[in-house]
C-alpha cells in the first residue's frame, strides 16, 4: 500500500504478502526474459535474409486468377521492401509478368501475399521468386 500526503507518496514499511508475491513473480518473469534474450545474444548469429516462396492456392477471381503464396525468411535478419516476381510462361515464352512488394519479412518468420494474373496458370509454367530486398 502507498500512503499519499501533501503530494508526496510514502510506501509502507509493512506491506501485505501479496505485494511480495507479485514482486517475486515479476522478478522471475523479468529474469526469465533477460535469460532468453541473453541466450539469443550467445546463440543467434546474424545471417543475411534467406527468402523462399511457397505457392499455396490458385483461385478464379472476377477479373482473372489469384495465386496466393507464403514467403519465408529463415535467416536471423529482417528483410525490407522484398520484391516478389511472378512469371507465367507458355512453351518457354513469358506471357505475363507481375510483381508485389512486401514492406517487411521479419527474421525467422513468414508473410502471406498474392499475385494476380489475367491468364489461367493451369497448364502453364508459373515461377514465383523473391527478386530483391533492402535492409530495414
Amino acid at each position: 500500500m502507498t500512503r499519499s500526503e501533501k503530494g508526496r507518496h510514502h510506501e509502507r514499511h509493512d506491506p501485505h504478502w501479496v505485494e511480495w508475491l507479485t514482486g517475486i513473480l515479476s522478478a522471475i518473469l523479468v529474469i526469465g526474459m533477460l535469460g532468453w534474450i541473453g541466450w539469443e545474444t550467445v546463440t543467434r548469429e546474424a545471417t543475411p535474409p534467406d527468402l523462399t516462396v511457397r505457392v499455396l492456392t490458385t483461385e478464379r477471381t472476377t477479373a482473372g486468377y489469384r495465386v496466393a503464396f507464403d514467403i519465408y525468411n529463415t535467416a536471423t535478419t529482417t528483410a525490407a521492401a522484398v520484391t516478389v516476381v511472378g512469371r507465367l510462361a507458355e512453351g518457354g515464352r513469358v506471357i505475363e509478368e507481375n510483381h508485389v512488394i512486401f514492406d517487411y519479412v521479419a527474421a525467422e518468420s513468414k508473410s502471406a501475399g498474392a499475385l494476380l494474373f489475367e491468364n489461367d496458370p493451369a497448364g502453364r509454367t508459373l515461377d514465383i521468386r523473391p527478386a530483391g530486398y533492402t535492409e530495414p
Partner: peptide, 26 residues
Amino acid sequence: FIGGHELQPETPWWHAFVRFTLPGYV
C-alpha cells in the same frame, strides 16, 4: 518530482524495487 514516492528510512531501496518497479515493468 512533486508526487514522487518516498521510502521510510528503515526500508531498504530494493523493497520498493521488488514490490513496485518490477511488477510495474511487467
